[in-house]
Nucleic acid binder design. Structure first.
Length: 184
DNA sequence: TAGGCGATGACCT
DNA sequence: GGTCATCGCCTAC
């Protein structure tokens, strides 16, 4: 299970490219797959099947009928562990991101999982994309310097919200202080 | 096959 | 701080 956490932390500072917009990841949440009751993959269903596959694939799901959220499957195969990308800083394609997100402050372009997916133009059609190949959505190499990292409880989940599996770049303005789920 | 329910965000008070 | 939009997926008939 520690491996899940390590992979999540290692995503911070990396750049996620999506359809003309690139985002430096500043906030993530780890999900432990078959061992984690809060994970979509806790029960194996057609929707979560993608997470049981090889790592570095994209898992996108729709929430509340409106928002898309982007996850990176961190593998290994059959463990179904994944990392939810919660926030980032737009470092490329700023204009396009504004077009998609509307007239909002720069730091808010990709703040929150739904907003981040929208800024990158991610939809269900991107489900299963290989993030290491040179496709429309891909993940950049690890940063030269590892940023300072803080951790805390996960947001919005109704189960196992007390495990400190949310990680963010300390002091980064694109990370907001999210309130805990009222249902937790 | 029908009903219930979010790994959210925006807007209202 | 509280409410609500809105739809695909999961679970239970």
């Amino acid at each position: 299970m520690d491996e899940v956490v390590d992979r999540a932390r290692s995503l911070l500072g990396r750049v996620l490219h999506g359809h003309g917009v690139a985002v430096r990841i500043t906030e993530v949440e780890a999900y432990g797959g078959v061992l984690d009751p809060a994970s979509h993959a806790f029960t194996r269903t057609p929707r979560s099947e993608i997470m049981y596959g090889p790592p570095w694939r994209l898992y996108v799901y729709r929430s509340y009928g409106i928002h898309h959220c982007a996850n990176v499957v961190t593998g290994p195969t059959e463990t179904a562990s994944a990392v939810l990308v919660r926030a980032g800083e737009v470092v490329e394609g700023r204009e396009l991101a504004h077009e998609r997100r509307g007239d909002v402050a720069g730091v808010q372009l990709a703040r929150g999982p739904g907003n981040l997916a929208q800024a990158l133009g991610l939809t269900l059609t991107d489900l299963g994309t290989d993030l290491l190949s040179d496709s429309g959505v891909r993940l950049g190499p690890p940063p030269d310097a590892v940023p300072p990292i803080s951790s805390g409880p996960r947001v919005g989940v109704s189960k196992a919200a007390d495990v400190p599996w949310r990680f963010w770049v300390t002091g980064d303005p694109t990370v907001s202080a999210y309130r805990r789920s009222p249902r937790a």
